[in-house]
Design a protein around this nucleic acid. Sequence first.
DNA 1: GTGCTTGTTGGCCA
DNA 2: GTGGCCAACAAGCA
Length: 270
Amino acid sequence: MPELAEVELSRRIWEPALGARIERVSLHERCRVFRGTDVARLRSALEGSVLKESAAHGKQMIFAIAASRRKTPHAWMGIHLGMEGSLHLLERGAEPGKHDHLALHGRGQTLIFRDIRHFGRVILHEGAEAPSWWRDLPPVLTGTLFTRSLLEEFLTRRKRAPLKAVLLMQERFPGVGNWMADEILWRARLHPRRAAGSLSNAQQQTLWREVRHVCRDSLRKIAPDWSYPDTWLFPHRWKDGGDCPRCGMGLTRETVGGRTTCWCPRCQAH
DNA sequence: GTGCTTGTTGGCCA
DNA sequence: GTGGCCAACAAGCA
Protein backbone atom coordinates (compact mmCIF):
# COMPACT_ATOMS: atom_id res chain seq x y z
CA MET A 1 0.00 0.00 0.00
CA PRO A 2 2.89 2.41 0.19
CA GLU A 3 1.99 5.61 -1.57
CA LEU A 4 2.39 9.11 -0.21
CA ALA A 5 -0.16 8.93 2.63
CA GLU A 6 0.69 5.40 3.70
CA VAL A 7 4.38 6.26 3.85
CA GLU A 8 3.65 9.17 6.17
CA LEU A 9 1.44 6.95 8.33
CA SER A 10 4.17 4.31 8.42
CA ARG A 11 6.71 6.87 9.56
CA ARG A 12 4.46 7.77 12.47
CA ILE A 13 4.34 4.14 13.63
CA TRP A 14 7.95 4.34 14.81
CA GLU A 15 7.54 7.85 16.18
CA PRO A 16 6.79 6.81 19.80
CA ALA A 17 10.17 5.07 19.89
CA LEU A 18 12.25 8.03 18.71
CA GLY A 19 14.87 8.90 21.28
CA ALA A 20 14.91 5.43 22.82
CA ARG A 21 18.24 3.63 22.93
CA ILE A 22 18.61 0.75 20.47
CA GLU A 23 20.16 -2.05 22.51
CA ARG A 24 20.42 -4.68 19.82
CA VAL A 25 19.85 -4.99 16.08
CA SER A 26 18.78 -8.17 14.36
CA LEU A 27 18.64 -8.35 10.59
CA HIS A 28 18.53 -10.81 7.69
CA GLU A 29 21.97 -10.14 6.25
CA ARG A 30 21.48 -11.67 2.84
CA CYS A 31 18.05 -10.23 2.24
CA ARG A 32 17.57 -8.26 -0.93
CA VAL A 33 16.16 -5.28 0.99
CA PHE A 34 19.76 -4.48 2.01
CA ARG A 35 21.08 -4.48 -1.56
CA GLY A 36 23.82 -1.90 -1.86
CA THR A 37 24.06 -1.54 1.92
CA ASP A 38 26.85 -2.76 4.16
CA VAL A 39 24.82 -4.51 6.87
CA ALA A 40 27.74 -4.63 9.32
CA ARG A 41 28.09 -0.85 9.16
CA LEU A 42 24.33 -0.44 9.43
CA ARG A 43 24.34 -2.54 12.56
CA SER A 44 27.19 -0.66 14.18
CA ALA A 45 25.66 2.70 13.26
CA LEU A 46 22.44 1.72 15.02
CA GLU A 47 23.51 -0.25 18.06
CA GLY A 48 23.73 1.86 21.18
CA SER A 49 22.29 4.87 19.35
CA VAL A 50 18.86 6.42 19.03
CA LEU A 51 16.66 7.42 16.13
CA LYS A 52 16.68 11.15 16.68
CA GLU A 53 14.06 12.26 14.17
CA SER A 54 12.27 11.09 11.06
CA ALA A 55 10.73 12.52 7.92
CA ALA A 56 8.78 11.27 4.92
CA HIS A 57 8.85 12.65 1.40
CA GLY A 58 6.91 10.92 -1.34
CA LYS A 59 7.69 7.25 -0.98
CA GLN A 60 10.93 7.85 0.92
CA MET A 61 11.49 7.88 4.66
CA ILE A 62 14.60 8.93 6.51
CA PHE A 63 15.69 8.45 10.11
CA ALA A 64 18.53 10.39 11.69
CA ILE A 65 20.78 8.22 13.87
CA ALA A 66 22.63 9.84 16.77
CA ALA A 67 24.31 8.90 20.04
CA SER A 68 21.44 10.58 21.87
CA ARG A 69 18.56 12.84 21.03
CA ARG A 70 20.65 15.92 21.79
CA LYS A 71 23.67 14.92 19.72
CA THR A 72 24.31 15.61 16.05
CA PRO A 73 23.49 12.63 13.81
CA HIS A 74 26.39 10.41 12.79
CA ALA A 75 24.37 8.45 10.22
CA TRP A 76 21.06 8.31 8.38
CA MET A 77 18.86 5.37 7.52
CA GLY A 78 16.63 5.55 4.46
CA ILE A 79 13.66 3.23 4.10
CA HIS A 80 11.58 2.61 0.99
CA LEU A 81 8.62 0.30 1.47
CA GLY A 82 8.60 -1.02 -2.11
CA MET A 83 5.35 -2.81 -2.93
CA GLU A 84 4.25 -4.13 0.43
CA GLY A 85 6.81 -3.16 3.02
CA SER A 86 5.53 -1.99 6.39
CA LEU A 87 6.75 -0.69 9.75
CA HIS A 88 5.62 -2.09 13.09
CA LEU A 89 6.16 -1.56 16.78
CA LEU A 90 6.29 -4.77 18.82
CA GLU A 91 6.11 -5.03 22.56
CA ARG A 92 9.30 -5.94 24.31
CA GLY A 93 9.95 -9.66 24.16
CA ALA A 94 7.86 -10.25 21.02
CA GLU A 95 9.86 -12.22 18.47
CA PRO A 96 10.31 -10.88 14.92
CA GLY A 97 8.58 -12.96 12.25
CA LYS A 98 9.93 -14.62 9.12
CA HIS A 99 9.54 -11.51 6.97
CA ASP A 100 10.78 -9.03 9.56
CA HIS A 101 14.14 -8.24 7.94
CA LEU A 102 15.21 -5.53 10.35
CA ALA A 103 14.45 -5.37 14.06
CA LEU A 104 15.67 -2.64 16.41
CA HIS A 105 15.33 -3.87 19.96
CA GLY A 106 14.90 -1.20 22.60
CA ARG A 107 14.20 -1.43 26.29
CA GLY A 108 10.48 -0.91 25.89
CA GLN A 109 9.70 -2.06 22.36
CA THR A 110 11.05 -3.44 19.11
CA LEU A 111 10.93 -1.54 15.82
CA ILE A 112 10.23 -3.76 12.83
CA PHE A 113 10.66 -3.39 9.09
CA ARG A 114 8.61 -6.11 7.40
CA ASP A 115 8.59 -6.90 3.70
CA ILE A 116 7.27 -10.15 2.29
CA ARG A 117 8.20 -9.46 -1.33
CA HIS A 118 11.62 -7.85 -0.85
CA PHE A 119 10.89 -4.89 -3.12
CA GLY A 120 11.55 -2.52 -0.27
CA ARG A 121 14.92 -1.13 0.63
CA VAL A 122 16.97 -0.05 3.65
CA ILE A 123 20.01 2.12 3.01
CA LEU A 124 22.65 3.70 5.20
CA HIS A 125 24.40 7.02 4.84
CA GLU A 126 27.22 7.85 7.24
CA GLY A 127 27.93 11.47 8.15
CA ALA A 128 26.43 14.43 9.99
CA GLU A 129 24.68 15.84 6.93
CA ALA A 130 21.61 14.27 5.36
CA PRO A 131 22.47 12.30 2.20
CA SER A 132 22.24 13.93 -1.22
CA TRP A 133 19.54 11.50 -2.37
CA TRP A 134 17.36 13.00 0.35
CA ARG A 135 18.30 16.65 -0.18
CA ASP A 136 17.79 16.41 -3.95
CA LEU A 137 14.25 15.06 -3.90
CA PRO A 138 11.81 16.91 -6.17
CA PRO A 139 9.38 19.51 -4.74
CA VAL A 140 6.63 18.20 -2.47
CA LEU A 141 3.36 18.14 -4.41
CA THR A 142 1.39 19.90 -1.69
CA GLY A 143 3.93 22.72 -1.33
CA THR A 144 4.37 26.03 -3.11
CA LEU A 145 7.35 24.83 -5.15
CA PHE A 146 5.19 22.47 -7.18
CA THR A 147 3.99 25.10 -9.62
CA ARG A 148 1.74 25.08 -12.68
CA SER A 149 4.72 25.82 -14.90
CA LEU A 150 6.68 22.91 -13.43
CA LEU A 151 3.80 20.62 -14.38
CA GLU A 152 3.47 22.19 -17.81
CA GLU A 153 7.15 21.81 -18.57
CA PHE A 154 7.03 18.13 -17.60
CA LEU A 155 3.90 17.40 -19.66
CA THR A 156 5.63 18.97 -22.64
CA ARG A 157 8.79 16.96 -22.16
CA ARG A 158 6.79 13.71 -21.86
CA LYS A 159 4.32 14.71 -24.51
CA ARG A 160 3.90 11.31 -26.16
CA ALA A 161 3.56 9.26 -22.98
CA PRO A 162 0.10 8.42 -21.55
CA LEU A 163 -0.94 10.55 -18.58
CA LYS A 164 -1.08 7.47 -16.36
CA ALA A 165 2.59 6.66 -16.98
CA VAL A 166 3.61 10.30 -16.48
CA LEU A 167 1.91 10.59 -13.09
CA LEU A 168 3.86 7.56 -11.90
CA MET A 169 7.22 9.23 -12.59
CA GLN A 170 8.71 9.94 -9.17
CA GLU A 171 11.11 12.56 -10.50
CA ARG A 172 8.14 14.92 -10.82
CA PHE A 173 5.31 13.34 -8.80
CA PRO A 174 7.00 12.00 -5.66
CA GLY A 175 4.66 9.74 -3.74
CA VAL A 176 2.09 9.18 -6.47
CA GLY A 177 1.48 5.46 -6.96
CA ASN A 178 -0.90 3.37 -8.95
CA TRP A 179 -4.10 4.11 -7.11
CA MET A 180 -3.36 7.80 -6.57
CA ALA A 181 -2.67 8.26 -10.27
CA ASP A 182 -6.05 6.73 -11.08
CA GLU A 183 -7.75 8.83 -8.42
CA ILE A 184 -6.21 12.04 -9.79
CA LEU A 185 -7.20 11.28 -13.38
CA TRP A 186 -10.71 10.29 -12.35
CA ARG A 187 -11.21 13.55 -10.45
CA ALA A 188 -9.73 15.56 -13.34
CA ARG A 189 -11.95 13.65 -15.82
CA LEU A 190 -8.98 12.79 -17.98
CA HIS A 191 -8.52 9.49 -19.82
CA PRO A 192 -5.42 7.60 -18.61
CA ARG A 193 -4.24 6.94 -22.19
CA ARG A 194 -4.45 10.59 -23.12
CA ALA A 195 -1.06 11.83 -24.37
CA ALA A 196 0.54 14.16 -21.82
CA GLY A 197 1.27 16.80 -24.45
CA SER A 198 -2.34 17.03 -25.70
CA LEU A 199 -3.96 18.86 -22.78
CA SER A 200 -5.58 22.26 -23.13
CA ASN A 201 -4.60 25.02 -20.69
CA ALA A 202 -7.78 24.45 -18.74
CA GLN A 203 -7.08 20.72 -18.50
CA GLN A 204 -3.55 21.34 -17.31
CA GLN A 205 -4.94 23.65 -14.64
CA THR A 206 -7.41 20.95 -13.56
CA LEU A 207 -4.75 18.29 -13.46
CA TRP A 208 -2.48 20.51 -11.36
CA ARG A 209 -5.34 21.23 -8.96
CA GLU A 210 -6.33 17.58 -8.60
CA VAL A 211 -2.77 16.36 -8.06
CA ARG A 212 -2.58 18.69 -5.07
CA HIS A 213 -6.10 17.93 -3.93
CA VAL A 214 -5.63 14.14 -3.87
CA CYS A 215 -2.27 14.45 -2.11
CA ARG A 216 -3.66 16.75 0.58
CA ASP A 217 -6.88 14.82 1.02
CA SER A 218 -5.28 11.42 1.19
CA LEU A 219 -3.13 12.64 4.06
CA ARG A 220 -6.11 14.13 5.85
CA LYS A 221 -8.81 11.54 5.24
CA ILE A 222 -6.94 8.27 5.40
CA ALA A 223 -4.98 9.15 8.48
CA PRO A 224 -7.52 8.43 11.25
CA ASP A 225 -8.15 4.76 10.45
CA TRP A 226 -6.55 3.89 7.09
CA SER A 227 -9.93 3.87 5.40
CA TYR A 228 -10.92 5.45 2.13
CA PRO A 229 -14.07 7.54 1.63
CA ASP A 230 -16.74 5.81 -0.43
CA THR A 231 -16.97 8.89 -2.66
CA TRP A 232 -13.47 8.16 -3.97
CA LEU A 233 -12.66 5.89 -6.85
CA PHE A 234 -10.32 3.84 -4.68
CA PRO A 235 -12.80 1.59 -2.79
CA HIS A 236 -14.54 0.73 -6.07
CA ARG A 237 -11.57 0.09 -8.28
CA TRP A 238 -10.53 -3.45 -7.45
CA LYS A 239 -13.75 -5.35 -7.26
CA ASP A 240 -15.05 -6.83 -10.49
CA GLY A 241 -17.98 -4.89 -11.79
CA GLY A 242 -17.25 -1.81 -9.65
CA ASP A 243 -19.25 1.28 -10.58
CA CYS A 244 -18.20 4.91 -10.83
CA PRO A 245 -19.11 6.60 -7.53
CA ARG A 246 -19.93 9.77 -9.47
CA CYS A 247 -22.14 8.62 -12.33
CA GLY A 248 -22.80 4.92 -11.68
CA MET A 249 -21.28 3.73 -14.96
CA GLY A 250 -19.38 0.43 -14.87
CA LEU A 251 -15.65 1.02 -14.43
CA THR A 252 -13.07 -0.11 -16.98
CA ARG A 253 -9.86 -1.90 -16.00
CA GLU A 254 -6.98 -2.30 -18.42
CA THR A 255 -3.20 -2.10 -18.42
CA VAL A 256 -1.92 1.41 -19.17
CA GLY A 257 1.70 2.40 -18.77
CA GLY A 258 2.41 -1.16 -17.65
CA ARG A 259 0.04 -1.00 -14.66
CA THR A 260 -3.51 -2.07 -14.02
CA THR A 261 -5.53 1.09 -14.49
CA CYS A 262 -9.13 1.81 -13.59
CA TRP A 263 -11.28 4.57 -14.99
CA CYS A 264 -14.84 5.59 -15.77
CA PRO A 265 -15.49 5.37 -19.52
CA ARG A 266 -18.19 8.04 -19.26
CA CYS A 267 -16.53 10.64 -17.00
CA GLN A 268 -13.12 10.09 -18.58
CA ALA A 269 -13.95 9.89 -22.28
CA HIS A 270 -10.93 9.91 -24.59
C1' DG B 1 -0.61 -25.26 -12.67
C1' DT B 2 -1.93 -19.85 -14.22
C1' DG B 3 -2.24 -15.13 -13.64
C1' DC B 4 -2.48 -11.35 -10.82
C1' DT B 5 -0.43 -7.74 -7.25
C1' DT B 6 -0.21 -0.48 -4.15
C1' DG B 7 7.35 -0.12 -7.19
C1' DT B 8 11.74 0.54 -9.35
C1' DT B 9 15.44 -0.43 -12.49
C1' DG B 10 18.15 -1.61 -16.48
C1' DG B 11 18.20 -2.91 -21.18
C1' DC B 12 16.55 -2.27 -25.69
C1' DC B 13 15.10 0.52 -29.46
C1' DA B 14 13.60 4.70 -32.09
C1' DG C 1 21.73 11.90 -25.15
C1' DT C 2 16.53 11.50 -24.54
C1' DG C 3 12.13 9.36 -24.34
C1' DG C 4 9.14 5.29 -24.16
C1' DC C 5 8.31 0.46 -23.36
C1' DC C 6 8.83 -3.83 -21.03
C1' DA C 7 10.77 -7.68 -18.43
C1' DA C 8 12.68 -8.81 -14.13
C1' DC C 9 12.90 -8.79 -9.32
C1' DA C 10 9.97 -12.09 -4.96
C1' DA C 11 6.31 -14.10 -2.58
C1' DG C 12 1.70 -14.99 -1.80
C1' DC C 13 -3.02 -15.43 -3.16
C1' DA C 14 -7.28 -16.81 -5.89
